[in-house]
Design a protein around this nucleic acid. Structure first.
Lengths: 222, 222
DNA sequence: GCTCAAAGTGTCATGACGTGACACATGTCG
DNA sequence: CGACATGTGTCACGTCATGACACTTTGAGC
Protein backbone atom coordinates (compact mmCIF):
# COMPACT_ATOMS: atom_id res chain seq x y z
CA UNK A 1 0.00 0.00 0.00
CA UNK A 2 1.44 3.30 -1.06
CA UNK A 3 2.38 5.28 1.95
CA UNK A 4 2.37 8.78 0.63
CA UNK A 5 0.19 10.67 -1.61
CA UNK A 6 1.07 11.27 -5.24
CA UNK A 7 -0.77 14.34 -6.47
CA UNK A 8 -4.19 12.93 -6.40
CA UNK A 9 -6.64 14.60 -8.68
CA UNK A 10 -5.84 16.69 -11.67
CA UNK A 11 -9.19 18.45 -11.83
CA UNK A 12 -10.65 17.91 -15.24
CA UNK A 13 -9.95 21.05 -17.31
CA UNK A 14 -13.50 22.25 -17.69
CA UNK A 15 -14.62 24.61 -20.40
CA UNK A 16 -14.71 27.74 -18.33
CA UNK A 17 -18.22 27.27 -16.97
CA UNK A 18 -17.52 30.05 -14.46
CA UNK A 19 -19.75 33.00 -15.11
CA UNK A 20 -17.96 35.34 -12.72
CA UNK A 21 -20.02 34.92 -9.59
CA UNK A 22 -21.71 38.19 -8.69
CA UNK A 23 -21.92 39.69 -5.27
CA UNK A 24 -25.11 37.79 -4.55
CA UNK A 25 -23.56 34.44 -5.20
CA UNK A 26 -20.50 35.33 -3.17
CA UNK A 27 -22.60 36.37 -0.23
CA UNK A 28 -24.49 33.13 -0.44
CA UNK A 29 -21.33 31.09 -0.37
CA UNK A 30 -20.02 33.15 2.51
CA UNK A 31 -23.19 32.57 4.50
CA UNK A 32 -23.05 28.89 3.79
CA UNK A 33 -19.46 28.63 4.89
CA UNK A 34 -20.15 30.73 7.96
CA UNK A 35 -23.01 28.40 8.91
CA UNK A 36 -20.80 25.38 8.45
CA UNK A 37 -18.05 26.92 10.55
CA UNK A 38 -20.40 27.98 13.30
CA UNK A 39 -22.08 24.60 13.28
CA UNK A 40 -18.87 22.64 13.64
CA UNK A 41 -17.51 24.99 16.25
CA UNK A 42 -20.65 24.63 18.34
CA UNK A 43 -20.87 20.90 17.73
CA UNK A 44 -17.32 20.62 18.92
CA UNK A 45 -17.97 22.69 22.01
CA UNK A 46 -21.36 21.41 23.08
CA UNK A 47 -21.97 18.27 21.11
CA UNK A 48 -24.38 17.61 18.29
CA UNK A 49 -27.63 17.07 20.14
CA UNK A 50 -27.04 19.91 22.56
CA UNK A 51 -26.53 22.43 19.78
CA UNK A 52 -29.72 23.92 18.42
CA UNK A 53 -30.31 25.21 14.95
CA UNK A 54 -31.19 28.55 16.43
CA UNK A 55 -27.80 28.82 18.08
CA UNK A 56 -26.05 28.09 14.82
CA UNK A 57 -28.15 30.66 13.01
CA UNK A 58 -27.66 33.24 15.74
CA UNK A 59 -23.92 32.74 15.62
CA UNK A 60 -24.01 33.83 11.99
CA UNK A 61 -26.72 36.39 12.64
CA UNK A 62 -29.33 34.97 10.36
CA UNK A 63 -32.77 33.67 11.23
CA UNK A 64 -33.31 30.00 11.88
CA UNK A 65 -35.58 29.98 8.86
CA UNK A 66 -32.65 31.01 6.73
CA UNK A 67 -30.57 28.18 8.08
CA UNK A 68 -33.08 25.78 6.63
CA UNK A 69 -32.76 27.47 3.26
CA UNK A 70 -29.12 26.43 3.20
CA UNK A 71 -29.36 23.05 4.84
CA UNK A 72 -32.30 20.72 4.81
CA UNK A 73 -31.77 19.78 8.43
CA UNK A 74 -29.36 19.94 11.29
CA UNK A 75 -28.13 16.56 10.21
CA UNK A 76 -27.48 17.92 6.76
CA UNK A 77 -25.07 20.57 7.94
CA UNK A 78 -23.09 17.93 9.79
CA UNK A 79 -23.00 15.37 7.02
CA UNK A 80 -22.35 17.53 4.00
CA UNK A 81 -18.65 17.17 4.67
CA UNK A 82 -18.92 13.42 4.63
CA UNK A 83 -20.74 13.56 1.34
CA UNK A 84 -17.85 15.41 -0.24
CA UNK A 85 -15.45 12.85 1.09
CA UNK A 86 -17.49 10.06 -0.41
CA UNK A 87 -17.28 11.68 -3.81
CA UNK A 88 -13.55 12.13 -3.38
CA UNK A 89 -13.20 8.39 -2.81
CA UNK A 90 -15.50 7.60 -5.70
CA UNK A 91 -13.51 9.86 -7.96
CA UNK A 92 -10.17 8.45 -6.87
CA UNK A 93 -11.55 4.95 -7.38
CA UNK A 94 -12.68 5.71 -10.90
CA UNK A 95 -9.21 7.00 -11.73
CA UNK A 96 -7.31 3.96 -10.51
CA UNK A 97 -5.56 2.13 -13.33
CA UNK A 98 -7.97 -0.28 -14.99
CA UNK A 99 -5.70 -3.28 -14.48
CA UNK A 100 -6.28 -3.06 -10.74
CA UNK A 101 -8.95 -5.29 -9.35
CA UNK A 102 -12.09 -3.69 -7.97
CA UNK A 103 -11.07 -4.45 -4.43
CA UNK A 104 -7.52 -3.18 -4.83
CA UNK A 105 -8.72 -0.01 -6.49
CA UNK A 106 -11.22 0.78 -3.76
CA UNK A 107 -8.80 -0.14 -1.06
CA UNK A 108 -6.07 2.06 -2.44
CA UNK A 109 -8.33 4.98 -3.19
CA UNK A 110 -9.93 4.84 0.24
CA UNK A 111 -6.74 4.42 2.19
CA UNK A 112 -4.94 7.21 0.39
CA UNK A 113 -7.79 9.61 0.95
CA UNK A 114 -8.15 8.78 4.60
CA UNK A 115 -4.44 9.21 5.13
CA UNK A 116 -4.61 12.60 3.49
CA UNK A 117 -7.55 13.62 5.65
CA UNK A 118 -5.85 12.49 8.80
CA UNK A 119 -2.62 14.27 7.94
CA UNK A 120 -4.74 17.35 7.38
CA UNK A 121 -5.89 17.33 10.96
CA UNK A 122 -2.44 17.27 12.49
CA UNK A 123 0.03 20.12 13.08
CA UNK A 124 -1.89 21.86 15.79
CA UNK A 125 -4.85 22.72 13.62
CA UNK A 126 -7.85 23.19 15.97
CA UNK A 127 -9.74 20.17 14.83
CA UNK A 128 -10.54 19.22 11.28
CA UNK A 129 -14.15 18.69 10.39
CA UNK A 130 -13.14 15.17 9.60
CA UNK A 131 -12.07 14.49 13.19
CA UNK A 132 -14.93 16.46 14.62
CA UNK A 133 -17.44 14.51 12.59
CA UNK A 134 -15.85 11.32 13.77
CA UNK A 135 -16.48 12.31 17.35
CA UNK A 136 -20.00 13.49 16.68
CA UNK A 137 -20.84 10.27 14.95
CA UNK A 138 -19.65 8.42 17.99
CA UNK A 139 -21.74 10.56 20.27
CA UNK A 140 -25.06 10.73 18.49
CA UNK A 141 -26.97 7.68 17.33
CA UNK A 142 -29.25 9.87 15.28
CA UNK A 143 -26.32 11.29 13.39
CA UNK A 144 -24.85 7.86 12.90
CA UNK A 145 -28.15 6.69 11.52
CA UNK A 146 -28.25 9.57 9.09
CA UNK A 147 -24.69 8.95 8.10
CA UNK A 148 -25.36 5.34 7.27
CA UNK A 149 -28.49 6.11 5.32
CA UNK A 150 -26.63 8.65 3.23
CA UNK A 151 -23.87 6.18 2.62
CA UNK A 152 -26.45 3.67 1.51
CA UNK A 153 -27.93 6.09 -0.98
CA UNK A 154 -24.53 6.97 -2.32
CA UNK A 155 -23.87 3.31 -2.85
CA UNK A 156 -26.00 3.42 -5.95
CA UNK A 157 -23.36 5.54 -7.59
CA UNK A 158 -20.54 3.42 -6.30
CA UNK A 159 -22.37 0.38 -7.63
CA UNK A 160 -22.49 1.82 -11.12
CA UNK A 161 -18.80 2.65 -11.17
CA UNK A 162 -17.91 -0.78 -9.88
CA UNK A 163 -20.15 -2.39 -12.47
CA UNK A 164 -18.31 -0.56 -15.21
CA UNK A 165 -14.95 -1.77 -13.98
CA UNK A 166 -16.27 -5.32 -13.72
CA UNK A 167 -18.09 -5.15 -17.00
CA UNK A 168 -21.23 -6.32 -15.23
CA UNK A 169 -24.83 -5.20 -15.40
CA UNK A 170 -25.81 -3.69 -12.06
CA UNK A 171 -29.49 -4.25 -12.79
CA UNK A 172 -29.32 -8.01 -12.91
CA UNK A 173 -26.04 -8.86 -11.22
CA UNK A 174 -26.01 -8.46 -7.48
CA UNK A 175 -22.24 -8.48 -7.22
CA UNK A 176 -21.49 -4.83 -7.94
CA UNK A 177 -24.00 -3.76 -5.36
CA UNK A 178 -22.71 -6.22 -2.82
CA UNK A 179 -19.14 -5.11 -3.40
CA UNK A 180 -20.08 -1.47 -2.97
CA UNK A 181 -21.92 -2.30 0.23
CA UNK A 182 -19.04 -4.41 1.50
CA UNK A 183 -16.61 -1.59 0.89
CA UNK A 184 -18.87 0.79 2.78
CA UNK A 185 -19.00 -1.76 5.54
CA UNK A 186 -15.22 -1.76 5.72
CA UNK A 187 -15.30 2.01 6.16
CA UNK A 188 -17.93 1.86 8.86
CA UNK A 189 -16.31 -0.93 10.82
CA UNK A 190 -12.97 0.83 10.56
CA UNK A 191 -14.50 4.06 11.78
CA UNK A 192 -16.10 2.27 14.68
CA UNK A 193 -12.90 0.46 15.57
CA UNK A 194 -10.96 3.67 15.44
CA UNK A 195 -13.50 5.65 17.46
CA UNK A 196 -13.84 3.07 20.19
CA UNK A 197 -10.21 2.02 20.31
CA UNK A 198 -11.12 -1.53 19.37
CA UNK A 199 -8.20 -3.46 17.94
CA UNK A 200 -5.76 -0.82 19.06
CA UNK A 201 -5.26 0.91 15.73
CA UNK A 202 -3.27 4.10 15.79
CA UNK A 203 -5.18 5.72 13.01
CA UNK A 204 -8.32 5.40 10.97
CA UNK A 205 -6.12 4.54 8.01
CA UNK A 206 -4.67 1.56 9.85
CA UNK A 207 -8.08 0.33 10.88
CA UNK A 208 -9.35 0.74 7.37
CA UNK A 209 -6.46 -1.22 6.00
CA UNK A 210 -7.18 -4.04 8.41
CA UNK A 211 -10.85 -4.03 7.47
CA UNK A 212 -10.02 -4.25 3.79
CA UNK A 213 -7.62 -7.03 4.56
CA UNK A 214 -10.54 -9.02 5.91
CA UNK A 215 -12.48 -8.40 2.72
CA UNK A 216 -9.45 -9.48 0.76
CA UNK A 217 -9.10 -12.69 2.72
CA UNK A 218 -12.76 -13.46 2.49
CA UNK A 219 -15.38 -14.98 4.67
CA UNK A 220 -15.52 -18.48 3.39
CA UNK A 221 -12.91 -20.27 5.42
CA UNK A 222 -14.05 -19.66 8.99
CA UNK B 1 -42.62 -12.68 13.80
CA UNK B 2 -45.85 -14.50 13.57
CA UNK B 3 -48.79 -12.77 15.00
CA UNK B 4 -49.82 -15.96 16.55
CA UNK B 5 -47.68 -19.02 16.40
CA UNK B 6 -47.50 -19.54 20.10
CA UNK B 7 -44.07 -20.26 21.42
CA UNK B 8 -42.02 -21.19 18.42
CA UNK B 9 -39.05 -21.26 20.72
CA UNK B 10 -39.15 -23.98 23.25
CA UNK B 11 -38.40 -21.49 25.98
CA UNK B 12 -35.49 -22.75 27.96
CA UNK B 13 -37.13 -24.51 30.88
CA UNK B 14 -36.52 -21.74 33.32
CA UNK B 15 -37.06 -22.13 36.98
CA UNK B 16 -40.64 -20.98 37.02
CA UNK B 17 -39.95 -17.30 36.62
CA UNK B 18 -43.63 -16.85 35.86
CA UNK B 19 -45.19 -15.11 38.76
CA UNK B 20 -48.69 -15.51 37.35
CA UNK B 21 -49.07 -12.22 35.53
CA UNK B 22 -51.74 -10.24 37.29
CA UNK B 23 -54.40 -8.15 35.70
CA UNK B 24 -52.07 -5.17 35.64
CA UNK B 25 -49.44 -6.91 33.59
CA UNK B 26 -52.03 -8.35 31.25
CA UNK B 27 -53.54 -4.96 30.63
CA UNK B 28 -50.14 -3.56 29.90
CA UNK B 29 -49.41 -6.24 27.36
CA UNK B 30 -52.81 -5.73 25.82
CA UNK B 31 -52.22 -2.01 25.46
CA UNK B 32 -48.83 -2.60 23.96
CA UNK B 33 -50.20 -5.06 21.45
CA UNK B 34 -53.08 -2.75 20.64
CA UNK B 35 -50.66 0.09 19.98
CA UNK B 36 -48.56 -2.12 17.75
CA UNK B 37 -51.62 -3.26 15.84
CA UNK B 38 -52.99 0.23 15.43
CA UNK B 39 -49.60 1.54 14.40
CA UNK B 40 -49.08 -1.04 11.69
CA UNK B 41 -52.62 -0.70 10.45
CA UNK B 42 -52.26 3.06 10.13
CA UNK B 43 -48.76 2.81 8.70
CA UNK B 44 -50.14 0.44 6.10
CA UNK B 45 -53.02 2.73 5.25
CA UNK B 46 -51.33 6.11 5.29
CA UNK B 47 -47.64 5.46 5.34
CA UNK B 48 -45.13 5.93 8.11
CA UNK B 49 -44.47 9.65 7.92
CA UNK B 50 -48.10 10.55 7.40
CA UNK B 51 -49.19 8.70 10.51
CA UNK B 52 -48.88 10.71 13.70
CA UNK B 53 -48.31 9.38 17.15
CA UNK B 54 -51.52 11.04 18.23
CA UNK B 55 -53.50 9.07 15.67
CA UNK B 56 -52.01 5.82 16.88
CA UNK B 57 -52.76 6.70 20.47
CA UNK B 58 -56.29 7.84 19.63
CA UNK B 59 -56.96 4.60 17.81
CA UNK B 60 -56.29 2.77 21.05
CA UNK B 61 -57.92 5.46 23.12
CA UNK B 62 -54.92 6.40 25.19
CA UNK B 63 -53.13 9.71 25.37
CA UNK B 64 -50.14 10.41 23.22
CA UNK B 65 -48.13 10.70 26.40
CA UNK B 66 -48.98 7.13 27.19
CA UNK B 67 -47.80 6.01 23.80
CA UNK B 68 -44.36 7.27 24.71
CA UNK B 69 -44.43 5.27 27.89
CA UNK B 70 -44.66 2.11 25.81
CA UNK B 71 -42.40 3.06 22.93
CA UNK B 72 -39.50 5.45 23.03
CA UNK B 73 -40.42 6.92 19.67
CA UNK B 74 -42.54 6.44 16.61
CA UNK B 75 -39.59 4.71 15.05
CA UNK B 76 -39.46 2.35 17.99
CA UNK B 77 -42.96 1.04 17.46
CA UNK B 78 -42.12 0.29 13.86
CA UNK B 79 -38.77 -1.37 14.47
CA UNK B 80 -39.51 -3.43 17.54
CA UNK B 81 -40.63 -6.21 15.24
CA UNK B 82 -37.36 -6.15 13.38
CA UNK B 83 -35.48 -6.37 16.63
CA UNK B 84 -37.27 -9.57 17.50
CA UNK B 85 -36.41 -10.97 14.11
CA UNK B 86 -32.77 -10.16 14.63
CA UNK B 87 -32.73 -12.09 17.84
CA UNK B 88 -34.45 -14.98 16.15
CA UNK B 89 -31.64 -15.12 13.61
CA UNK B 90 -29.01 -14.74 16.28
CA UNK B 91 -30.56 -17.52 18.25
CA UNK B 92 -30.85 -19.82 15.26
CA UNK B 93 -27.25 -19.06 14.37
CA UNK B 94 -26.02 -19.92 17.84
CA UNK B 95 -27.84 -23.25 17.62
CA UNK B 96 -26.35 -24.34 14.31
CA UNK B 97 -24.12 -27.37 14.63
CA UNK B 98 -20.61 -26.32 15.61
CA UNK B 99 -18.99 -28.05 12.66
CA UNK B 100 -20.62 -25.59 10.29
CA UNK B 101 -18.50 -22.66 9.25
CA UNK B 102 -19.51 -19.23 10.44
CA UNK B 103 -20.72 -18.23 7.02
CA UNK B 104 -22.70 -21.39 6.46
CA UNK B 105 -24.30 -21.16 9.85
CA UNK B 106 -25.40 -17.56 9.39
CA UNK B 107 -26.53 -18.21 5.88
CA UNK B 108 -28.63 -21.18 6.86
CA UNK B 109 -30.08 -19.55 9.93
CA UNK B 110 -30.96 -16.39 8.05
CA UNK B 111 -32.42 -18.07 5.02
CA UNK B 112 -34.56 -20.45 7.03
CA UNK B 113 -35.96 -17.69 9.14
CA UNK B 114 -36.75 -15.44 6.21
CA UNK B 115 -38.47 -18.28 4.43
CA UNK B 116 -40.57 -18.89 7.48
CA UNK B 117 -41.48 -15.23 7.76
CA UNK B 118 -42.42 -15.02 4.13
CA UNK B 119 -44.54 -18.14 4.27
CA UNK B 120 -46.24 -16.58 7.24
CA UNK B 121 -47.37 -13.63 5.19
CA UNK B 122 -49.07 -15.69 2.51
CA UNK B 123 -52.48 -17.36 2.53
CA UNK B 124 -54.59 -14.26 2.44
CA UNK B 125 -53.45 -12.89 5.76
CA UNK B 126 -53.97 -9.12 5.57
CA UNK B 127 -50.33 -8.20 5.58
CA UNK B 128 -47.75 -9.45 7.98
CA UNK B 129 -45.80 -6.89 9.91
CA UNK B 130 -42.79 -8.31 8.16
CA UNK B 131 -44.12 -7.30 4.75
CA UNK B 132 -45.48 -4.04 6.00
CA UNK B 133 -42.20 -3.08 7.54
CA UNK B 134 -40.49 -3.91 4.29
CA UNK B 135 -42.68 -1.42 2.50
CA UNK B 136 -42.30 1.23 5.16
CA UNK B 137 -38.57 0.90 5.08
CA UNK B 138 -38.68 1.46 1.37
CA UNK B 139 -40.84 4.53 1.74
CA UNK B 140 -39.19 6.37 4.59
CA UNK B 141 -35.52 7.26 4.64
CA UNK B 142 -35.77 8.16 8.31
CA UNK B 143 -37.06 4.72 9.14
CA UNK B 144 -34.41 3.10 7.03
CA UNK B 145 -31.79 5.11 8.84
CA UNK B 146 -33.14 3.99 12.18
CA UNK B 147 -33.30 0.43 11.00
CA UNK B 148 -29.66 0.44 9.98
CA UNK B 149 -28.50 2.07 13.17
CA UNK B 150 -30.30 -0.53 15.21
CA UNK B 151 -28.82 -3.27 13.15
CA UNK B 152 -25.41 -1.77 13.73
CA UNK B 153 -25.93 -1.75 17.47
CA UNK B 154 -27.13 -5.33 17.41
CA UNK B 155 -24.01 -6.29 15.57
CA UNK B 156 -22.10 -6.12 18.81
CA UNK B 157 -24.00 -9.15 19.98
CA UNK B 158 -23.64 -10.93 16.69
CA UNK B 159 -19.93 -10.19 16.83
CA UNK B 160 -19.60 -11.90 20.18
CA UNK B 161 -21.41 -15.00 19.06
CA UNK B 162 -19.33 -15.22 15.91
CA UNK B 163 -16.16 -14.75 17.91
CA UNK B 164 -17.08 -17.69 20.09
CA UNK B 165 -17.63 -19.92 17.09
CA UNK B 166 -14.33 -18.80 15.59
CA UNK B 167 -12.49 -18.97 18.85
CA UNK B 168 -11.30 -15.42 18.29
CA UNK B 169 -11.05 -12.44 20.58
CA UNK B 170 -13.49 -9.79 19.39
CA UNK B 171 -11.55 -7.08 21.21
CA UNK B 172 -8.38 -7.41 19.23
CA UNK B 173 -9.40 -9.32 16.12
CA UNK B 174 -11.38 -7.34 13.59
CA UNK B 175 -12.64 -10.39 11.76
CA UNK B 176 -15.65 -11.30 13.89
CA UNK B 177 -16.91 -7.76 13.68
CA UNK B 178 -16.34 -7.58 9.98
CA UNK B 179 -18.12 -10.88 9.43
CA UNK B 180 -21.08 -9.73 11.45
CA UNK B 181 -21.20 -6.51 9.49
CA UNK B 182 -20.87 -8.34 6.20
CA UNK B 183 -23.73 -10.62 7.08
CA UNK B 184 -25.88 -7.61 7.96
CA UNK B 185 -24.88 -6.12 4.65
CA UNK B 186 -26.14 -9.21 2.89
CA UNK B 187 -29.49 -8.79 4.60
CA UNK B 188 -29.72 -5.14 3.70
CA UNK B 189 -28.71 -5.56 0.10
CA UNK B 190 -31.12 -8.45 -0.24
CA UNK B 191 -33.91 -6.40 1.26
CA UNK B 192 -33.18 -3.56 -1.08
CA UNK B 193 -33.01 -5.84 -4.09
CA UNK B 194 -36.28 -7.44 -3.12
CA UNK B 195 -38.04 -4.14 -2.46
CA UNK B 196 -36.94 -2.50 -5.65
CA UNK B 197 -37.22 -5.53 -7.87
CA UNK B 198 -33.53 -5.40 -8.68
CA UNK B 199 -32.18 -8.68 -9.96
CA UNK B 200 -35.65 -10.05 -10.41
CA UNK B 201 -35.82 -12.18 -7.30
CA UNK B 202 -39.16 -13.72 -6.53
CA UNK B 203 -38.72 -13.54 -2.81
CA UNK B 204 -36.60 -12.02 -0.12
CA UNK B 205 -35.26 -15.46 0.61
CA UNK B 206 -33.99 -15.81 -2.95
CA UNK B 207 -32.34 -12.42 -2.86
CA UNK B 208 -30.78 -13.22 0.48
CA UNK B 209 -29.41 -16.45 -0.83
CA UNK B 210 -27.85 -14.66 -3.78
CA UNK B 211 -26.31 -12.07 -1.49
CA UNK B 212 -24.79 -14.74 0.69
CA UNK B 213 -23.51 -16.47 -2.39
CA UNK B 214 -21.52 -13.34 -3.16
CA UNK B 215 -20.06 -13.39 0.32
CA UNK B 216 -19.23 -17.04 -0.17
CA UNK B 217 -17.47 -16.40 -3.44
CA UNK B 218 -15.58 -13.45 -2.08
CA UNK B 219 -14.46 -10.13 -3.31
CA UNK B 220 -10.88 -10.79 -4.16
CA UNK B 221 -11.01 -11.97 -7.72
CA UNK B 222 -12.74 -9.11 -9.51
C1' DG C 1 -62.65 -5.87 53.44
C1' DC C 2 -59.57 -1.92 54.22
C1' DT C 3 -55.55 0.62 53.65
C1' DC C 4 -51.48 1.85 51.57
C1' DA C 5 -47.87 2.00 48.28
C1' DA C 6 -46.72 1.24 43.63
C1' DA C 7 -47.60 1.51 38.95
C1' DG C 8 -50.17 3.35 35.01
C1' DT C 9 -52.46 7.26 33.00
C1' DG C 10 -54.11 11.98 31.76
C1' DT C 11 -53.26 16.79 31.45
C1' DC C 12 -50.50 20.64 30.93
C1' DA C 13 -46.38 22.94 29.71
C1' DT C 14 -42.20 23.18 27.24
C1' DG C 15 -38.67 22.82 23.74
C1' DA C 16 -36.65 21.58 19.30
C1' DC C 17 -37.12 20.51 14.40
C1' DG C 18 -39.00 21.56 10.13
C1' DT C 19 -42.24 24.00 6.65
C1' DG C 20 -45.58 27.16 4.41
C1' DA C 21 -47.03 31.94 3.51
C1' DC C 22 -46.17 36.55 2.82
C1' DA C 23 -43.88 40.93 3.07
C1' DC C 24 -39.55 43.31 2.69
C1' DA C 25 -35.01 44.34 1.01
C1' DT C 26 -31.18 43.54 -1.73
C1' DG C 27 -28.96 42.11 -6.01
C1' DT C 28 -29.15 42.08 -11.10
C1' DC C 29 -30.05 43.51 -15.66
C1' DG C 30 -32.16 46.31 -19.38
C1' DC D 1 -33.66 54.47 -12.92
C1' DG D 2 -37.00 50.87 -12.97
C1' DA D 3 -38.51 46.01 -13.30
C1' DC D 4 -37.68 41.67 -11.88
C1' DA D 5 -35.60 37.87 -9.40
C1' DT D 6 -33.72 36.16 -5.40
C1' DG D 7 -32.62 35.94 -0.63
C1' DT D 8 -34.24 37.01 4.12
C1' DG D 9 -37.15 37.96 8.24
C1' DT D 10 -41.32 37.23 10.60
C1' DC D 11 -45.21 34.74 11.89
C1' DA D 12 -47.86 30.69 12.30
C1' DC D 13 -48.27 25.97 12.51
C1' DG D 14 -47.71 20.88 13.09
C1' DT D 15 -45.12 17.02 14.89
C1' DC D 16 -42.08 14.57 17.97
C1' DA D 17 -40.43 14.07 22.48
C1' DT D 18 -39.96 14.91 27.58
C1' DG D 19 -40.72 16.69 32.37
C1' DA D 20 -43.92 17.63 36.23
C1' DC D 21 -47.81 16.74 38.81
C1' DA D 22 -52.23 14.96 40.01
C1' DC D 23 -55.60 11.20 39.61
C1' DT D 24 -56.93 6.42 39.22
C1' DT D 25 -56.30 1.52 39.26
C1' DT D 26 -54.12 -2.54 41.03
C1' DG D 27 -51.78 -5.57 44.12
C1' DA D 28 -50.34 -6.82 48.73
C1' DG D 29 -50.51 -7.16 53.66
C1' DC D 30 -53.10 -7.03 57.72
Amino acid sequence: MARYNPAMTAPAPETVPTPPPGRRERKKQATREALLDAAFRLFGEKGYEATTVEEIADAVDVSARTFFRYFASKEDVALTTQEEQFYAVLDAFARRPPEESVLTAIRTAGTLLVEALEADGRDGRPMSRFDCLMRLTEESPALRAGSMERTRRKNDEMTRVIAVRMGADPETDLRPRMFAAMASTAFMVAAEAHRTGLGGFDSFADALDAAFEVLETGFRDY
